[in-house]
Design a binder for these strands. Sequence first.
DNA 1: CAGTCGCTGTCAATTCATTGACATAATTTT
DNA 2: AAAATTATGTCAATGAATTGACAGCGACTG
Lengths: 212, 212
Amino acid sequence: MEEKEISQTVVGRLPRYFRYLGELKDEGIERVSSQELSDIMQVTASQIRQDLNNFGGFGQQGYGYNVGFLYDEIGKILGLHREHNLIIVGAGHLGQALVNYTNFERRGFLFRGIFDKDPQVCGQKIRGITVRPMNEMEAFVQENDIDIAVLAIPKTSAVEVAEQLVCCGIKGIWNFAHVDLRVPERIQVENVHLSDSLMKLSYNLSSREDEE
Amino acid sequence: MEEKEISQTVVGRLPRYFRYLGELKDEGIERVSSQELSDIMQVTASQIRQDLNNFGGFGQQGYGYNVGFLYDEIGKILGLHREHNLIIVGAGHLGQALVNYTNFERRGFLFRGIFDKDPQVCGQKIRGITVRPMNEMEAFVQENDIDIAVLAIPKTSAVEVAEQLVCCGIKGIWNFAHVDLRVPERIQVENVHLSDSLMKLSYNLSSREDEE
DNA sequence: CAGTCGCTGTCAATTCATTGACATAATTTT
DNA sequence: AAAATTATGTCAATGAATTGACAGCGACTG
């Protein structure tokens, strides 16, 4: 399929559409117009139509969009119709928090393994999943068809671990470590830099005060 | 001070500059040009100069930027020269993970209290901080000069808690709950929507496959 | 100490994103 | 069944962000 590249700006808005459509669906609402969605979501109706049209004409003139249908379609676009096998690297507090957050599983993101370099932690079970030593990671990824690795480790080891993951054929990395990973272009990296986020909040707090 | 509004796009890049400058500083490097930074950070030199110039002329022609000075200045811009008092609402896995992440404290973000609605959890200590019941929250915020509240609770209760926080004079909310909070404009909200981030990664994995 | 070079700050050009406008088509009303 | 209404898909216009270009200042060199 020769499709035009969708900008990350647009992609970043899809999950939010998906969430609101899910809520409408749960409320039993069957149809919605871009104008109604616009009111609920606080974005322009024009942007909604523009965004959706990147992926095809999901609506119908004079009617609007069918909530259930659009919800499913966006789900497919986001790749939620298939299952993803994940591992978590780092069984610290953050790693554990992620494993215990069951909403990911509900969306098809299945935690298949947890790895940690601390021998004390290895062997323990977190939500039924045994923590394994790092040296078993590469084989595990290959044998269990893992496509996403979650890096919940300090930045000091993140670069090295990322390299190992690249070598054993990982497709995507969800990176919670506070470094920028340099990986081949074929591998997708999604960063969650919590301290950056907190600093942004801090900036906005300060700048608001200055205005007064 | 009558200063022009800085776009969130630019603000969002500041923490990254801050991080790289910190690393250079730790390596003992004293000066850096926008071109050198450009090579390290993989952004255009033009963008770096443009971004920094929003806040003033930190560099010197023919010399470049003094690493230590620029680091400190960006720190101040981000509001890191002062301390922030935070509370965490929700003592679940995520809340605990955040409390235990000591890097925030090092930057002046001090966790002063933890709150949870579960009576079983109240009274327990996490890294020396006692978990308190929700009904004590409002008074605590006011008495302890809390400016930031971290919402690490399910979306079902997030909206209600946010309203309480607004009432007792919170200035900023770091929101990990999967809802959009509607708060007065004077209150800053920074969202960390983990599932949105994961869906974005999922999209990029799928779209990459389609290309092949 | 004069000349060369390096690098910023800034303006202009370009690219990208958002908003507005409307022709057209399906739906609902009468 | 015709008329009126609704709301999409898309094109054009506007606005924002990024990149490119360079004048001019300061630093370094011989």
